[in-house]
Amino acid sequence: MDAQSIKVACSSCNLRELCLPMGLNPDEMDKLDNVISARRRIKRGSALFNTGDRFTSLYAVRSGFFKTCVTTADGRDQVTGFQMTGEIIGLDGIVSDRHSCDAIALEDAEVCVMPFDQVEELSREFTTLQHHVHKIMSREIVRDHSVMLLLGSMRAEERLAAFLLNLVQRLHARGFSQSELILRMTREEIGSYLGMKLETVSRTFSKFVEEGIIEVKQRYVHIKNTEGLRLIVNPPTCP
């Protein structure tokens, strides 16, 4: 695995408000610094972990972008999620002590290593951390439910509009633009995640461009009409 370990302190990280609980006192933060003591660099296209690997740690994305995917019975890769700066990867391994998906870097990335047994031990010591770990798990469950809704009941236009709105909302929470983004994933990967064929993804992007909702230049997307995207996902109901 292409990775390099580096020393890091959570207390001095400008992302701590995204991936760590608020309200830790200095003593608790020192203890957390001792647990989350290393970073790893992952090259674009390399795996942070693979299906079947032994689960030892959670990973906080410090920089870069990841996709998680599973291999279907007929050998196809099915994308199950995209993870960005400030988000946690590796929760899939808790249930059986083995990872149940691959986590692949979509660009050069860096993660903070959070050894799970030590995080678990520490979370029993102070409830703020325990509550935060539960919150992260709950967020993953809610996200899974949202994807099921997306795949089960939405048309192609609704799926892509919801995907773009979710992506730009998450990026905005990290200080990026509310209307501009660079897609780190390919259209094929978007299609795999949304249950759409590549041709359908491309056709739907083109439709949004023609309607003046977005502007697209290769992987750059400018959302010109956010309300237009919202109306596609939640059309007004007739009185």
Results as ranks from 00 to 15, higher is better:
Arg203Leu: 07
Glu120Met: 13
Val147Asn: 00
Ala173Arg: 13
His131Gln: 10
Thr186Asp: 03
Met148Phe: 02
Gln178Pro: 02
Ser202Phe: 00
His222Thr: 12
Ala173Phe: 04
Leu150Ser: 07
Val79Asn: 04
Leu194Pro: 05
Arg40Trp: 11
Arg76Gly: 10
Phe65Ala: 01
Ile89Asp: 05
Glu188Trp: 12
Asp108Val: 04
Val70Ser: 10
Glu87His: 06
Glu210Arg: 15
Ser12Glu: 15
Arg39Lys: 15
Leu32Trp: 08
Leu15His: 14
Phe66Lys: 09
Gly152Phe: 04
Glu215Val: 10
Thr128Trp: 06
Asn34Ser: 13
His172Gly: 04
Val221Phe: 12
Leu150Phe: 02
Ile232Arg: 05
Ile88His: 02
Glu28Phe: 01
Leu194Met: 00
Glu107Cys: 13
Arg219Thr: 04
Leu122Tyr: 03
Phe163Gly: 03
Gln83Lys: 14
Leu58Ile: 06
Ile213Met: 10
Arg44Leu: 06
Gly86Ser: 09
Glu211Cys: 09
Phe49Ser: 05
Met137Ser: 13
Ile223Asp: 01
Ser100Ala: 07
Ser12Tyr: 08
Thr128Asn: 14
Ser138Asp: 13
Ser5Gln: 11
Phe163Gln: 08
Ile88Ser: 00
Glu110Cys: 13
Gln178Ser: 02
Leu149Gln: 03
Gly152Cys: 09
Val70Cys: 13
Lys197Pro: 11
Val233Lys: 04
Met29Ile: 05
Lys217Gly: 03
Met148Val: 01
Thr80Met: 11
Gly52His: 01
Arg159Thr: 13
Ala38Arg: 15
Ala103Met: 07
Ile182Ala: 08
Cys238Pro: 11
Val119Phe: 01
Ile89Gln: 07
Asp74Arg: 00
Gly23His: 06
Gly64Pro: 02
Gly52Thr: 04
Met114Arg: 03
Ser11Phe: 09
Phe49Leu: 05
Ser57Trp: 10
Leu15Ala: 08
Ile213Asn: 07
Leu15Ile: 08
Gln4Ala: 13
Lys31Val: 07
Asp33Leu: 01
Val221Pro: 04
Arg54Thr: 15
Val95Thr: 05
Val147Arg: 15
Ile182Lys: 13
Ala105Phe: 10
Phe116Ala: 08
Ala109Leu: 08
Gln78Ser: 15
Val209Pro: 02
Arg54Glu: 11
Glu180Asn: 03
Leu150Gln: 02
Ser37Met: 10
Ser63Leu: 09
Lys135Ile: 02
Ser11Trp: 07
Tyr193Met: 00
Gly45Pro: 02
Ile88Gln: 06
Asn25Ser: 12
Gly64Tyr: 05
Arg98His: 15
His222Glu: 10
Arg41Thr: 12
Leu181Gly: 00
Asn50Cys: 14
Glu17Asn: 11
Lys67Pro: 00
Gly75Thr: 00
